[in-house]
Amino acid sequence: MGNALFMVWRESVEAILVISILHAWIRARGDAQIGVRHLWAGVGGGLVLAGLLALAMLGVHGWLAADALDLFQTAIMLVAAGLITHMVLWMRSHGRHMKGELEAGLARAAETAGGASVAVLAAIAVGREGAETVLFLYGLAMEQSGATLAQMFAGAGIGFVLALATAWLIQGGARWLPSRVFFRATEIMLLLLAAALLVSGVERLIDLEWLPPLVEPVWDSSLLLDDASTTGGIAAAFAGYRAQPSLMVLVAWFGYWALVMCLGRTQRRT
Protein backbone atom coordinates (compact mmCIF):
# COMPACT_ATOMS: atom_id res chain seq x y z
CA MET A 1 0.00 0.00 0.00
CA GLY A 2 2.79 2.41 0.94
CA ASN A 3 4.67 1.98 -2.33
CA ALA A 4 1.56 2.57 -4.43
CA LEU A 5 0.56 5.58 -2.31
CA PHE A 6 3.98 7.21 -2.65
CA MET A 7 4.39 6.55 -6.36
CA VAL A 8 0.94 7.80 -7.34
CA TRP A 9 1.41 10.80 -5.05
CA ARG A 10 4.69 11.83 -6.64
CA GLU A 11 3.67 11.15 -10.23
CA SER A 12 0.35 12.95 -9.80
CA VAL A 13 2.05 15.99 -8.24
CA GLU A 14 4.23 16.42 -11.32
CA ALA A 15 1.29 16.16 -13.72
CA ILE A 16 -0.86 18.50 -11.61
CA LEU A 17 1.94 21.08 -11.43
CA VAL A 18 2.28 21.07 -15.22
CA ILE A 19 -1.48 21.48 -15.60
CA SER A 20 -1.46 24.32 -13.06
CA ILE A 21 1.31 26.13 -14.95
CA LEU A 22 -0.60 25.75 -18.22
CA HIS A 23 -3.81 26.97 -16.60
CA ALA A 24 -2.11 30.05 -15.15
CA TRP A 25 -0.48 30.80 -18.52
CA ILE A 26 -3.84 30.58 -20.32
CA ARG A 27 -5.51 32.94 -17.83
CA ALA A 28 -2.64 35.43 -17.95
CA ARG A 29 -2.63 35.41 -21.75
CA GLY A 30 -6.36 36.20 -22.00
CA ASP A 31 -6.48 35.01 -25.61
CA ALA A 32 -9.82 33.75 -26.89
CA GLN A 33 -7.96 31.51 -29.35
CA ILE A 34 -6.48 29.43 -26.51
CA GLY A 35 -8.91 28.56 -23.72
CA VAL A 36 -9.17 26.30 -20.70
CA ARG A 37 -11.21 23.91 -22.86
CA HIS A 38 -8.05 23.04 -24.78
CA LEU A 39 -6.27 22.28 -21.52
CA TRP A 40 -8.97 19.91 -20.29
CA ALA A 41 -9.19 18.26 -23.69
CA GLY A 42 -5.48 17.49 -23.43
CA VAL A 43 -5.87 16.18 -19.87
CA GLY A 44 -8.65 13.89 -21.06
CA GLY A 45 -6.51 12.68 -23.94
CA GLY A 46 -3.63 11.88 -21.59
CA LEU A 47 -5.91 9.88 -19.29
CA VAL A 48 -7.22 7.95 -22.30
CA LEU A 49 -3.65 7.12 -23.37
CA ALA A 50 -2.78 5.84 -19.89
CA GLY A 51 -6.00 3.83 -19.80
CA LEU A 52 -5.29 2.25 -23.18
CA LEU A 53 -1.85 1.23 -21.95
CA ALA A 54 -3.42 -0.42 -18.90
CA LEU A 55 -5.94 -2.29 -21.07
CA ALA A 56 -3.19 -3.40 -23.45
CA MET A 57 -1.13 -4.84 -20.61
CA LEU A 58 -4.15 -6.64 -19.17
CA GLY A 59 -4.85 -8.07 -22.62
CA VAL A 60 -1.27 -9.29 -22.97
CA HIS A 61 -1.48 -10.71 -19.44
CA GLY A 62 -4.45 -12.89 -20.40
CA TRP A 63 -3.00 -13.95 -23.75
CA LEU A 64 0.51 -15.06 -22.82
CA ALA A 65 1.43 -18.54 -21.65
CA ALA A 66 2.99 -19.14 -18.22
CA ASP A 67 6.70 -18.79 -19.10
CA ALA A 68 6.14 -15.91 -21.51
CA LEU A 69 3.93 -14.17 -18.92
CA ASP A 70 6.68 -14.43 -16.31
CA LEU A 71 9.13 -12.83 -18.74
CA PHE A 72 6.65 -10.09 -19.62
CA GLN A 73 6.02 -9.27 -15.96
CA THR A 74 9.75 -9.24 -15.27
CA ALA A 75 10.33 -6.92 -18.21
CA ILE A 76 7.64 -4.55 -16.89
CA MET A 77 9.42 -4.41 -13.52
CA LEU A 78 12.75 -3.58 -15.15
CA VAL A 79 11.18 -1.02 -17.51
CA ALA A 80 9.39 0.63 -14.58
CA ALA A 81 12.68 0.85 -12.65
CA GLY A 82 14.35 2.47 -15.67
CA LEU A 83 11.51 4.94 -16.21
CA ILE A 84 11.51 6.00 -12.56
CA THR A 85 15.27 6.58 -12.66
CA HIS A 86 15.02 8.55 -15.90
CA MET A 87 12.21 10.67 -14.44
CA VAL A 88 14.25 11.55 -11.37
CA LEU A 89 17.32 12.52 -13.39
CA TRP A 90 15.20 14.52 -15.85
CA MET A 91 13.44 16.43 -13.09
CA ARG A 92 16.76 17.10 -11.37
CA SER A 93 18.06 18.90 -14.45
CA HIS A 94 14.83 20.49 -15.73
CA GLY A 95 12.62 20.92 -12.67
CA ARG A 96 14.23 24.19 -11.57
CA HIS A 97 13.47 25.84 -14.93
CA MET A 98 10.32 23.87 -15.81
CA LYS A 99 7.92 26.79 -15.45
CA GLY A 100 9.99 29.13 -17.63
CA GLU A 101 10.65 26.46 -20.27
CA LEU A 102 6.97 25.54 -20.47
CA GLU A 103 5.85 29.15 -20.83
CA ALA A 104 8.50 29.96 -23.44
CA GLY A 105 7.66 26.84 -25.44
CA LEU A 106 3.96 27.59 -25.24
CA ALA A 107 4.44 31.14 -26.45
CA ARG A 108 6.25 29.85 -29.54
CA ALA A 109 3.85 26.99 -30.21
CA ALA A 110 0.76 29.15 -29.72
CA GLU A 111 1.72 31.30 -32.68
CA THR A 112 1.43 28.35 -35.06
CA ALA A 113 -0.73 25.69 -33.41
CA GLY A 114 -3.00 27.79 -31.19
CA GLY A 115 -5.07 25.86 -28.66
CA ALA A 116 -3.83 22.53 -30.03
CA SER A 117 -0.39 23.26 -28.54
CA VAL A 118 -1.86 23.44 -25.03
CA ALA A 119 -3.93 20.29 -25.58
CA VAL A 120 -0.94 18.32 -26.87
CA LEU A 121 1.35 19.45 -24.06
CA ALA A 122 -1.26 18.60 -21.42
CA ALA A 123 -1.87 15.20 -23.04
CA ILE A 124 1.86 14.46 -23.06
CA ALA A 125 2.27 15.49 -19.42
CA VAL A 126 -0.70 13.49 -18.16
CA GLY A 127 -0.08 10.57 -20.51
CA ARG A 128 3.58 10.27 -19.55
CA GLU A 129 2.96 10.38 -15.80
CA GLY A 130 -0.08 8.13 -16.19
CA ALA A 131 1.88 5.58 -18.22
CA GLU A 132 4.71 5.50 -15.67
CA THR A 133 2.15 5.02 -12.89
CA VAL A 134 0.42 2.22 -14.78
CA LEU A 135 3.72 0.43 -15.40
CA PHE A 136 4.76 0.77 -11.78
CA LEU A 137 1.43 -0.41 -10.37
CA TYR A 138 1.40 -3.34 -12.79
CA GLY A 139 4.91 -4.36 -11.72
CA LEU A 140 3.94 -3.98 -8.06
CA ALA A 141 0.68 -5.93 -8.49
CA MET A 142 2.61 -8.96 -9.71
CA GLU A 143 3.67 -9.63 -6.11
CA GLN A 144 0.25 -8.91 -4.54
CA SER A 145 -3.02 -10.83 -4.27
CA GLY A 146 -6.33 -10.71 -2.47
CA ALA A 147 -6.54 -8.20 0.37
CA THR A 148 -3.03 -6.84 -0.24
CA LEU A 149 -3.95 -6.09 -3.87
CA ALA A 150 -7.03 -4.18 -2.71
CA GLN A 151 -4.86 -2.26 -0.23
CA MET A 152 -2.47 -1.37 -3.04
CA PHE A 153 -5.26 0.22 -5.08
CA ALA A 154 -6.58 1.97 -1.97
CA GLY A 155 -3.10 3.38 -1.43
CA ALA A 156 -3.06 4.59 -5.04
CA GLY A 157 -6.33 6.46 -4.48
CA ILE A 158 -5.06 8.04 -1.27
CA GLY A 159 -1.86 9.02 -3.07
CA PHE A 160 -3.83 10.92 -5.71
CA VAL A 161 -5.81 12.83 -3.07
CA LEU A 162 -2.57 13.72 -1.26
CA ALA A 163 -1.08 14.85 -4.57
CA LEU A 164 -3.90 17.36 -5.03
CA ALA A 165 -3.23 18.79 -1.57
CA THR A 166 0.54 18.82 -2.10
CA ALA A 167 0.32 20.58 -5.46
CA TRP A 168 -2.00 23.19 -3.91
CA LEU A 169 0.50 23.82 -1.12
CA ILE A 170 3.45 24.12 -3.51
CA GLN A 171 1.55 26.43 -5.86
CA GLY A 172 0.36 28.49 -2.89
CA GLY A 173 3.95 29.11 -1.93
CA ALA A 174 3.76 27.54 1.52
CA ARG A 175 7.09 28.26 3.18
CA TRP A 176 7.16 24.97 5.03
CA LEU A 177 6.86 22.95 1.80
CA PRO A 178 9.02 24.60 -0.88
CA SER A 179 9.10 22.73 -4.19
CA ARG A 180 12.90 22.30 -4.12
CA VAL A 181 12.79 20.47 -0.78
CA PHE A 182 9.81 18.38 -1.89
CA PHE A 183 11.43 17.16 -5.11
CA ARG A 184 14.83 16.53 -3.50
CA ALA A 185 13.31 14.37 -0.74
CA THR A 186 10.98 12.44 -3.01
CA GLU A 187 13.61 11.76 -5.67
CA ILE A 188 15.60 9.78 -3.07
CA MET A 189 12.51 7.72 -2.27
CA LEU A 190 11.85 7.14 -5.96
CA LEU A 191 15.38 5.90 -6.57
CA LEU A 192 15.01 3.50 -3.63
CA LEU A 193 11.76 2.21 -5.15
CA ALA A 194 13.45 1.77 -8.52
CA ALA A 195 16.23 -0.22 -6.85
CA ALA A 196 13.61 -2.42 -5.17
CA LEU A 197 11.91 -3.09 -8.51
CA LEU A 198 15.28 -3.93 -10.07
CA VAL A 199 16.02 -6.43 -7.31
CA SER A 200 12.62 -8.10 -7.78
CA GLY A 201 13.20 -8.27 -11.53
CA VAL A 202 16.66 -9.80 -11.14
CA GLU A 203 15.31 -12.39 -8.70
CA ARG A 204 12.63 -13.35 -11.22
CA LEU A 205 15.29 -13.76 -13.92
CA ILE A 206 17.27 -15.99 -11.55
CA ASP A 207 14.15 -18.10 -10.88
CA LEU A 208 13.60 -18.38 -14.65
CA GLU A 209 17.29 -19.41 -15.01
CA TRP A 210 18.03 -16.48 -17.29
CA LEU A 211 20.63 -15.25 -14.80
CA PRO A 212 22.88 -17.30 -12.47
CA PRO A 213 22.72 -16.51 -8.73
CA LEU A 214 26.56 -16.78 -8.64
CA VAL A 215 26.64 -17.27 -4.84
CA GLU A 216 23.48 -17.91 -2.84
CA PRO A 217 23.20 -16.65 -0.20
CA VAL A 218 26.12 -14.32 0.36
CA TRP A 219 25.01 -13.76 3.97
CA ASP A 220 22.03 -14.32 6.25
CA SER A 221 20.93 -11.31 8.29
CA SER A 222 17.54 -12.74 9.24
CA LEU A 223 18.36 -12.53 12.95
CA LEU A 224 19.02 -8.79 12.63
CA LEU A 225 16.21 -7.96 10.19
CA ASP A 226 14.09 -10.65 8.56
CA ASP A 227 12.59 -9.49 5.26
CA ALA A 228 9.49 -11.55 6.10
CA SER A 229 8.81 -9.35 9.16
CA THR A 230 6.84 -6.10 9.02
CA THR A 231 9.90 -3.84 9.27
CA GLY A 232 11.97 -6.01 6.97
CA GLY A 233 9.10 -6.16 4.48
CA ILE A 234 8.98 -2.36 4.36
CA ALA A 235 12.74 -2.23 3.79
CA ALA A 236 12.39 -4.86 1.06
CA ALA A 237 9.54 -3.04 -0.68
CA PHE A 238 11.04 0.44 -0.46
CA ALA A 239 14.75 -0.26 -0.92
CA GLY A 240 15.25 -3.82 -2.19
CA TYR A 241 16.58 -5.22 1.11
CA ARG A 242 17.09 -8.97 1.25
CA ALA A 243 18.07 -10.94 4.36
CA GLN A 244 19.58 -13.70 2.22
CA PRO A 245 20.75 -12.04 -1.00
CA SER A 246 22.47 -13.80 -3.85
CA LEU A 247 25.65 -12.32 -5.29
CA MET A 248 23.84 -11.49 -8.54
CA VAL A 249 21.26 -9.44 -6.63
CA LEU A 250 24.03 -7.56 -4.82
CA VAL A 251 25.83 -6.88 -8.10
CA ALA A 252 22.61 -5.49 -9.57
CA TRP A 253 21.81 -3.37 -6.48
CA PHE A 254 25.28 -1.86 -6.08
CA GLY A 255 25.66 -1.51 -9.85
CA TYR A 256 22.40 0.44 -9.99
CA TRP A 257 23.54 2.95 -7.37
CA ALA A 258 26.95 3.28 -9.00
CA LEU A 259 25.25 4.06 -12.32
CA VAL A 260 22.90 6.61 -10.70
CA MET A 261 25.84 8.37 -9.01
CA CYS A 262 27.82 8.39 -12.25
CA LEU A 263 24.90 9.83 -14.23
CA GLY A 264 24.28 12.40 -11.50
CA ARG A 265 27.89 13.60 -11.60
CA THR A 266 27.84 13.79 -15.40
CA GLN A 267 24.61 15.74 -15.20
CA ARG A 268 26.08 18.26 -12.75
CA ARG A 269 29.14 18.80 -14.98
CA THR A 270 27.01 19.52 -18.04
Rank of each mutant, 00 (worst) to 15 (best):
H23M: 14
H23W: 08
H23D: 11
H23A: 14
A24T: 04
A24E: 09
A24P: 00
W25C: 08
W25I: 11
W25E: 15
I26A: 07
I26C: 09
A28D: 14
A28H: 12
A28V: 10
A28S: 13
A28W: 09
R29E: 15
R29L: 15
G30K: 11
G30S: 14
G30T: 12
D31Y: 06
D31K: 00
A32H: 10
A32C: 13
A32N: 12
A32T: 13
Q33I: 11
Q33M: 11
I34C: 09
I34K: 02
I34S: 02
I34G: 02
G35N: 03
G35C: 04
G35I: 03
G35P: 03
G35F: 09
V36E: 15
V36T: 13
V36F: 05
R37I: 14
R37V: 08
H38W: 13
H38G: 15
H38M: 05
L39R: 06
L39K: 10
L39S: 11
L39P: 04
L39W: 07
W40I: 10
W40E: 13
W40A: 09
A41H: 10
G42F: 00
G42A: 08
V43W: 02
G44E: 11
G44V: 07
G45S: 14
G45W: 03
G45F: 02
G46N: 08
G46T: 02
L47W: 04
L47Q: 05
L47H: 07
L47Y: 08
V48W: 03
V48L: 15
V48E: 05
V48G: 10
V48P: 11
L49D: 05
A50Q: 10
A50L: 12
A50K: 09
A50C: 11
G51L: 02
G51D: 06
L52P: 01
L52G: 07
L52R: 02
L53N: 01
A54Q: 07
A54W: 08
A54M: 12
L55R: 03
L55C: 13
A56H: 00
A56T: 05
A56C: 04
A56F: 04
M57T: 04
L58A: 12
L58E: 10
G59S: 04
G59E: 01
G59V: 00
G59H: 01
